[in-house]
Amino acid sequence: MLSFTQVRIARPTNQLTKVIQFYTEGVGLPQLSSFTDHAGYSDVMVGLPHREYHLEFTQYEAGSPGTAPTKDNLLVFYIPHPIELSSAVERLQNLGYFPVAPENPYWQDKSFTFEDPDGWRVILFRGTWGEVE
């Protein structure tokens, strides 16, 4: 078995400013790094506090595809503390993002589903993985 120390999920967007606002101000992830106009690319990386998991968003100056391929492409955040979950939902709503019905009914009563500016779905799960079956 391989031993991994870090995981980064990267995807392009053509709305970098809005996407970063969604994930930092809305979801509440800290910005870890960024750069502007490196070989035509700009980038922002966000992550979970004290974890080795990162989300990277890049924008190419000539344009980058950004829309989600389906409504069931998900990024799931497990939030065990009800007050933190409520705060994240409220922050997203204050930014103009409101829950949408999940494609898969499994998520319906266990979480809140939001679409980021590119249409990618984000699940804010009430609890931790394996806790609710």
Rank of each mutant, 00 (worst) to 15 (best):
L124S: 06
F112E: 07
Q21W: 03
S86T: 13
Y106C: 04
F35W: 14
P99T: 03
D37N: 13
L92T: 06
E25R: 15
Q21P: 07
L74M: 11
W129N: 09
D43E: 11
F22N: 06
V132A: 06
T17H: 05
L29C: 05
H38R: 08
G130K: 04
Q6L: 01
G119D: 09
A101T: 09
N14F: 02
V7T: 07
D37S: 15
R11N: 12
Y106A: 05
K71C: 10
Q59V: 02
H81P: 00
T24F: 03
A88T: 07
Y23R: 10
Q108D: 01
Y41E: 01
K110F: 06
A39S: 13
S42A: 11
P49Y: 05
T128S: 13
A62N: 14
V122K: 01
P80R: 10
T67Q: 12
L124A: 10
V76G: 12
F57L: 04
R8G: 00
K110V: 00
T58V: 14
V76R: 13
Y60D: 11
T70L: 03
L2Q: 04
G47D: 03
S33A: 11
P12K: 05
I123A: 01
G63Q: 08
T36E: 14
D116S: 06
P102Q: 15
W129C: 03
E84T: 15
V27G: 04
T58D: 12
G28C: 08
H38F: 13
T67K: 15
G47Q: 09
V44Y: 09
R126Q: 07
H54W: 01
N94S: 08
G127D: 13
E90A: 12
T36L: 10
L95P: 11
F35P: 01
T24S: 07
E56G: 14
L75P: 04
T58A: 09
V27F: 03
Y41V: 10
G40S: 12
V132M: 02
G47V: 00
M45L: 12
V44Q: 12
T24G: 02
P30Q: 06
N94W: 06
E56S: 12
E52K: 12
A68C: 11
A10K: 02
